[in-house]
């Protein structure tokens, strides 16, 4: 019976995570990607981090724009508590020219980003996470020096107006982790822009 329950849960999880992207509970391998300041960034650079709020976000998606100030707020609130925001642009500039490195640099500057906004030209790292839309969040939790996926999904449940959201998924997930609890809602979905994969 127990194995049947586990099987059902794994099937449900499979249905939600396409193409073998990281699922909740999976261990994330580190990466090295170019930041908008020209420096290479890895997760291991953040020595004191308890985890990360990895957000796949871009320059052009109206949904991303709607969440921009909320993403900046997440970093202000949680980087000092050990969960910094790491933004990664998942889109190929070859498919959507508005996603080029130069435009990322300009975008980060005009919005005063105080967190990394990383460029993944090969989309190799992006493929490992396999986000499906922007903005798409992966909260990572450090457990005995390994980074485990603790949450995958949306920032909150109101794209139009954050002040009217009554579920703050990412905040709640990080707050759960900060007090040593497992995340109550580990997966959510939202309407968003699809990822611009190259050669697709």
């Amino acid at each position: 019976m127990k194995s049947l329950v586990i099987l059902c849960f794994s099937l449900m999880a499979m249905a939600l995570r396409p193409e073998g992207g990281y699922d909740v509970g999976d261990t994330v391998s580190d990466f090295k990607l170019k930041n908008v300041d020209g420096q290479m960034v890895s997760l291991s650079d953040f020595k004191g981090a308890k985890g990360f709020i990895v957000i796949f976000d871009c320059n052009t998606c109206p949904m991303s724009k709607a969440y921009n100030s909320r993403i900046i707020e997440l970093n202000k609130k949680f980087s000092s508590q050990g969960f910094p925001v790491i933004a990664i642009n998942p889109n190929s500039a070859k498919v959507s020219e508005g996603e080029s490195y130069d435009k990322m640099v300009a975008y980060a500057k005009s919005h005063n980003y105080d967190f990394p906004y990383l460029y993944d030209d090969s989309q190799e790292t992006v493929r490992k996470f396999y986000p499906t839309n922007t903005p798409h969040v992966f909260v990572l939790n450090k457990i005995s020096n390994q980074l485990k996926v603790a949450y995958i999904g949306a920032i909150d449940n109101n794209s139009r107006d954050g002040s009217k959201a009554d579920k703050h998924y990412v905040e709640d997930a990080v707050n759960d982790l900060l007090v040593g609890k497992s995340v109550a809602t580990p997966k959510t979905r939202a309407i968003g822009c699809s990822i611009k994969w190259k050669n697709s």
């Binding site: 249905a15 939600l16 396409p18 499906t132 839309n133 999904g153 949306a154 449940n157 109101n158 794209s159 579920k167 998924y169 959510t188 979905r189 939202a190 309407i191 968003g192 822009c193 699809s194 990822i195």
Partner: peptide, 20 residues
């Protein structure tokens, strides 16, 4: 409809919510 996480799976359990 408010609360996309509640209604998206009711359209199709495999839909991520990405458009189109």
């Amino acid at each position: 409809e408010p609360d996309p996480n509640a209604w998206i799976p009711k359209i199709d359990k495999n839909w991520s919510g990405a458009l189109p």
